[in-house]
Design a protein around this nucleic acid. Structure first.
Ligand code: MN
Ligand code: MN
Ligand code: ZN
Ligand code: ZN
Lengths: 141, 141
DNA sequence: TTGTTATTGCAAGTTAATTGCATTAATGGG
DNA sequence: CCCATTAATGCAATTAACTTGCAATAACAA
């Protein structure tokens, strides 16, 4: 799979390919996403995008759309919440995440192949997996 | 670490060691846990224990206590909910979980050591991790 | 420009899980 | 056994992330 670095241009074309409309709100939320170097919550995203409180629902729907076309990845936290980051399409990977500030380091280690094989052997299909490492980062200690 | 198979006896002594009281409700919930061969939700547990609706909060508090002494493990689902199972203390492991029926197979593969090392190198401390594999089991297909 | 249809705004709903507080019950010492 | 201490429970209310319904609006392409 060819991996293309994300930018506004590329994302517009992703939207188009998927028959999703390029709207003002989506661009706005996208721009906000681009300003972060760590995964963020929907609320953080709305605030950074300088949208009114009521637009949180639009943020969620936008995230959903972006997840659908693979340019955003959700990262589950220990407490059940989820944070989101831009991802190059097809770039599956995992993370070290600070429980407190959500600073994230890429974890370049994935057992997808092995897990998939074992799962299939057990009769599972339609397989997905999570692997995240949580801790306290230096700054937060 | 010595691993001792769980039974009612052993669990009572775990409670005592941790200065937790052996109550009727806890035993009741424990008995319910023992009847399952798969992880379950708090609600399922309350129903199996034949407790009234209002006792769901007791189930949650009991689960919390059991998590604390390491005889119960929580398994996060893709949708953010959590299911719970009895675990021998110190028996850290992961799972294949059916998204629909929560049938579970043990996943005997854990990168704890490697993850911990990498995380520490990155400045993280107080490290934990999740790794779960989700799919549709044969029966649910 | 216009018609179609996706997107949005707003309000309300959902639900797993938590919290506060008064009551009850387990425990350990005497 | 009895009592004092304090943890556990029962009940009601709350939290908070996320979802849903629906009417109004905006994007797109014809
Ligand atoms: Mn990442
Ligand atoms: Mn298990
Ligand atoms: Zn941090
Ligand atoms: Zn199943």
């Amino acid at each position: 799979m060819k991996r293309l670095k994300l930018n506004t241009q590329r994302i517009r074309s992703c939207l188009k390919e998927s028959h999703l409309r390029s709207t003002r709100k989506r661009e706005c939320i996208l721009e906000a996403l681009l300003t972060f170097d760590r995964p963020v919550s929907a609320e953080e995203l709305r605030d950074r995008a300088d949208l009114p409180k009521s637009d949180l629902v639009t943020v969620y729907r936008t995230i959903e759309a972006f997840l659908g076309i693979g340019i955003v990845q959700g990262i589950p936290l220990e407490d059940g919440k989820t944070i989101y980051e831009l991802t190059d399409p097809g770039d599956h990977h995992h993370h070290f995440v600070c429980r407190k500030c959500h600073k994230t380091e890429r974890l370049d280690l994935c057992l997808a192949g092995e897990l998939e094989k074992k799962a299939r052997k057990l009769g599972f299909s339609d397989i997905s997996h999570v692997m995240e490492v949580y801790g306290s980062c230096e700054d937060c200690n």
